[in-house]
Simulated assay, not measured.
Amino acid sequence: MSKKQIKAANKLLSNCRPQVKLSESPMEENPGLPEDYFDIVYSIFALGWSTNLDKTLGNVNKYLKTGGKFIFSWEHPLHSRVNSKDGVLTFDKSYHEEGPYDHEAWDHPAIMQQHKLSTYINSLISNGFAIERMLEEVRLTDEDIHRHANRWYSYEKAKSVPTTLIIKSRKM
């Protein structure tokens, strides 16, 4: 997502064989990736940064071979709409509200995209994917519970509202 991240990743992967090619590009644009080439595409907490979900998923579909897997994770759509204060959960905004929003968990402005679960599923289907599995589970160790106390991903909130959504799909 930035030249700084590409530089750090290139340094980390400098001894990797075969050589890895990294690109900095909006997800809605093809940075020169081949079509019908990859067996698996992963998106680990990145898809929510896309400003055009349908275009991004259309690109992922083009990159995958038929039968290829697309697996992504993102913050669960309920998580950012619910607030936990003094052990009480409240909705801060409607679940039905979609679009860009300023995410409060960051120390600096971070504009993310808010989608309903149905938007993710319907966009995957309309872009030629079959959903194979979906996870909304939360598993926190005692260390996680202590480390995340009074933070965005607090244990108190995670007991009632899933923090993460993971979907495994297949290109039709």
Score class of each variant (00 low, 15 high):
15 N>M: 04
6 I>Q: 15
132 E>G: 12
63 Y>D: 05
156 E>R: 08
134 M>S: 07
129 F>N: 06
81 R>V: 14
161 V>S: 07
27 M>C: 08
153 Y>Q: 11
158 A>L: 14
59 N>K: 14
131 I>H: 01
89 L>H: 11
136 E>S: 05
39 D>H: 10
131 I>F: 00
162 P>N: 11
50 S>E: 03
12 L>K: 13
66 T>V: 07
77 P>H: 10
114 Q>L: 12
25 S>F: 05
48 G>M: 12
128 G>K: 04
21 K>L: 09
2 S>H: 05
35 E>V: 03
145 I>V: 15
80 S>Q: 10
120 Y>E: 02
69 K>S: 10
80 S>T: 13
53 L>M: 09
97 E>F: 04
73 S>E: 13
97 E>V: 07
69 K>T: 10
111 I>Y: 03
68 G>K: 07
126 S>W: 00
110 A>M: 15
124 L>Q: 06
160 S>W: 08
145 I>C: 04
61 N>G: 02
49 W>K: 12
111 I>T: 13
6 I>R: 15
42 Y>H: 10
75 E>D: 11
81 R>E: 12
147 R>N: 11
11 K>E: 15
33 L>T: 02
55 K>M: 11
55 K>E: 13
153 Y>L: 12
170 R>F: 00
92 D>Y: 01
84 S>D: 07
88 V>A: 04
137 E>G: 09
73 S>L: 06
41 V>P: 02
122 N>I: 01
51 T>A: 09
80 S>P: 00
47 L>K: 01
115 H>N: 14
136 E>F: 03
102 D>R: 10
145 I>E: 05
7 K>E: 15
52 N>G: 03
148 H>D: 09
112 M>G: 01
35 E>R: 03
98 E>P: 09
121 I>S: 06
6 I>K: 15
45 F>E: 13
156 E>P: 03
58 G>A: 14
94 S>A: 14
3 K>T: 11
113 Q>E: 12
83 N>Y: 05
128 G>A: 05
49 W>Y: 15
26 P>L: 13
92 D>F: 01
61 N>T: 02
90 T>P: 02
